[in-house]
Amino acid sequence: MPAVPTSWSGSDLTSPVRRFAGSLICLERIDELKSIHEADGQIFIGSCVSHTKLMENLLIQKNFPLLIQAVKVLGSPPIRNMGTIGGNICTASPAGDTLPPLHTLGAIVEIRSIDSNRLVPLKGFIKGPGKTALQKSEIVYGVWINTNQDYNVCHYEKVGQRKALAIAIASFAALLKLSESGIIEKALFAWGSVAPVIVTSQEAEKMLIGKPLTAESLKSVVPLVEKAVSPIDDVRASAEYRRMVAGNLLFRLLQYGNHGST
């Protein structure tokens, strides 16, 4: 039973490990933690699935293109070869690239210890930067995502200082269900890097329902988004810039405006 820190692949550990006295358990060779499979209308992604394997997986490509969009811009090719989804979740960075898409997709985290097994929605799992609901002697076994996702538009975008190896200044994941005439029937949004945890805005989502996907509609919810976020100033950007970008990222959805109408 791990009474000591566990790691999924260790890619975010070697710098601190030099100051860390004690034992580490590496989980990367446990086969069942590397599995992606479908069961009862859900897809399970084991915590030790690397980002590269996730991107290459046909089940994920078919069901969750939003997650693929996010993982494609995570780190760099060797980072994606080494880093895992479990590591990205448990690092609980506000800038974690898989977190906004996993939020909008309603991912459930499966936590296991030697004698227990519990399921926690991702939203409740992450408590703050670097803080999770994980107790001593527990590991994240994997995540479950419902395949019955009712949307026809998905968008992930990271605003960083450069293209590769960028830590998000702000990130945005969106799922929309648009009617044939371009009316928003359903909207799910999540923002990263603009608060201690991933930000959602049910108010904004609700307000858009029944409206056409136009700049005007989106503009009407920007104040709600700006209210929902609580960004900080850091080396990468100012709080004010982050707040502005979080709202403006909504307008990227306009590119999908003609969906179904042709």
Partner: peptide
Amino acid sequence: GESRLSCLMLAAQ
């Protein structure tokens, strides 16, 4: 056969 970063890998791996 896969590129990895040797500064982020520990001996046991």
